[in-house]
Design a binder for these strands. Sequence first.
DNA 1: CGGCCCCTGACG
DNA 2: CGTCAGGGGCCG
Length: 278
Amino acid sequence: MPELPEVETIKRILEPQLAGRTITRLILIRPDIVEHPTPEVFADTVTGAAITSMDRRGKYLSVLLQDGGRIVLHLRMTGCLLVTPPNWPEEKHTHLVFHLDDGNELRFIDPRRFGRFWLFRNGEEDTISGSHKLGPEPFDNLFTADYLSGALSKRKRAIKDCLLDQSVVAGIGNIYADETLFVAKIRPDRAASALTDDEWQRLTDAIPVVITQAIKANAMTPGEYLVGKGQEYRNTPTLQVYGHAGEPCPRCGEILCRAVVAGRGSVYCPTCQGGSSC
DNA sequence: CGGCCCCTGACG
DNA sequence: CGTCAGGGGCCG
């Protein structure tokens, strides 16, 4: 479900509820959600572990443990993490339940079951989850127009496709690729190699702005998050084009069009993002 | 690179 | 019934 802003939102909501807690028991309803090590070792190791904090890198979340180990997870398309009171009704597709020492439970819910968990013990390097292949965060000082054009200006593929490459910049998915390209006034299907210096600059500027705005717009209380099951961010008013095909462009009033770019549904303004028709 | 796969649910 | 969905890995 989530891209960087949503994962960050989840982190900010959950971290205060998890920091300082100890995991007393893990129920592995669907052990195949655990990628590493084995589900049994995963359960044995996290049982009794104290949680110190959480971390986010791109779309990955980590739960840091006092002993130096960490749980790494990726929610993929439909994964959801909830901290619930005891006896909170169990959602369909609940696959993991971490019992905590305050009686609450951390539950992993995922209808499509694409989400995955890994555990790395103190000193164990993560070379398997994919988080080690991530490019810079959008807020990183390394994320500059020179960096972006240097990484992409020889690629002939669509710029949108390039933005979805997590090794170039971490955390952008289908929604925020469309949103950032809209703000930067670049059509999603433009070849990366055809972008001008000015366009690289606009795109580099747009990305952290759009992401920051979305994190702000997503903010909610733990209560709101629990009741809404973390599904409420999709129609955020800050989304200017994603989900708005057929509606007027918020900038020029032209009808936003939809096309398939890089195999993904894409929405853009045919007028202010570049000129030609859909 | 494109194409297919992992899954379920919503929608036309 | 078919198609699509916020993700990513793997395959030739």
